[in-house]
Design a protein around this nucleic acid. Sequence first.
DNA 1: GCAGCAGTTTGATCCTGATCAAGGAAGGCC
DNA 2: GGCCTTCCTTGATCAGGATCAAACTGCTGC
Lengths: 249, 249
Amino acid sequence: MAMPSAPRLTQTKCSDCPIRHRAVCAQCEPAELEDLERIKSYRTYTPGETIAWAGERLSLVGSVVQGIALLSSTLPDGRRQMVGLLFPSDFLGRPGRDTISHDVTAATQVTFCMFQKVEFERLIARTPKIQRRLLEMTFDELDAARDWMLLLGRKTAREKIASLFVIMARRDSALNSRPADQGLRFPLYITREAMADYLGLTIETVSRQISALKREGLFRLEENRVVHIADFARLLEEAGDDSDGGVLI
Amino acid sequence: MAMPSAPRLTQTKCSDCPIRHRAVCAQCEPAELEDLERIKSYRTYTPGETIAWAGERLSLVGSVVQGIALLSSTLPDGRRQMVGLLFPSDFLGRPGRDTISHDVTAATQVTFCMFQKVEFERLIARTPKIQRRLLEMTFDELDAARDWMLLLGRKTAREKIASLFVIMARRDSALNSRPADQGLRFPLYITREAMADYLGLTIETVSRQISALKREGLFRLEENRVVHIADFARLLEEAGDDSDGGVLI
DNA sequence: GCAGCAGTTTGATCCTGATCAAGGAAGGCC
DNA sequence: GGCCTTCCTTGATCAGGATCAAACTGCTGC
């Protein structure tokens, strides 16, 4: 394991945990935060590792602290569609259900901050604010899923790639608390295969479209980072995105 | 207005309201139910009518009592994707947001049971059970959206049609409290255009695929009802559905 | 150094679903 | 009845993305 990353993972402090300051508990009282503290634990997965299979019993819920996890559905014949892309602070799991309905895999090295589901359920039953926060987060996920449906059903391959880049740029800048509209440099954390599964395309089409956009000078790639987008507004346009580009997700 | 339907709409009783016995308040105490009673009102829309535009301020939330409503997203150039199909008991609106992010239209004559959003928010703030119920419903919607993403991204036109029919059969049988696995007869409440928007296809492809499945003897159409599916299991298979067919949605 | 491998790119060809176009069916209205 | 309009079906052709195939890149291990 590489030296620089290991300590950061094992030393993750409560103050680094997105559960505390970004996700579930953004407006909690100190007492409620302590309740959360007591029942949490961390777990790290390696890139490519399966975190859970669809249909599996899952007695944990939690959220991503660091890294990227993927949610996907698979047809009996193996065709696969990604249905969720979990960045730090995103929540995984369903209070009130004992099985998970999608495959969960680690795209990068990923660390979760997890709670025993029964304990978490007890907690939200007596802490409406946490439940409320969870409802807000689920609404956000539903909105994202619906935008994603528009992408899958109606956008061309070229537009899909542009949209993916815009999404990645925004999520990355949210992660680093930078404004998104410059979009000068952000990493493509995921493989071509994951992009294809995200976009409902084949890896060949993903590769070809990225090459085409590069040829047209929209950006360069440097060690899997998208660099120097000449005209971020034009990429937004290609993505068919009519929201104003400055707003973070 | 046709005689048989008008009285049923205007006379909708609390006991007929899905908010009460199916949706938001499935496990509420009588006192909580009375709180809901006091702040609700009904509104009916005609087929094709726009209920709300994307981006509009919306001070109401509510759920469908009767009929079907459609949620859809539109690209700047007019390409449209349906992102939600609201049957009776389905909830519309977001406590905590003042704008709606999708177009809402009436597919059939549709009646909503609505609450002033501010009042509903006050109610859920002091009634965690209702909030909990809303969270469960939102989880269900998110699951449905993710299955839908698999359909849009990875299924063929033929499989899309089969999936649509399976979904319609299940939702219709849930509506009428019948087991879904026979699927002998159910209406296609929506037009070919709505089907195309649901499935990410054109109306021509929808029409052709339905004709092809008919030719193969999977079903007949009688006044826009799907009749006598020879082998519901085969349709499930075409839909790539590996859940057991007897379970209602 | 080089073999082996996973991930990626590029090329050639095919096929599914889109597009363009024309007709048919059913209902409403005069 | 006849003429709209709306919705649906069918046909001919096209094109975007899938498929099949091969080569390239960067890494790891020896």
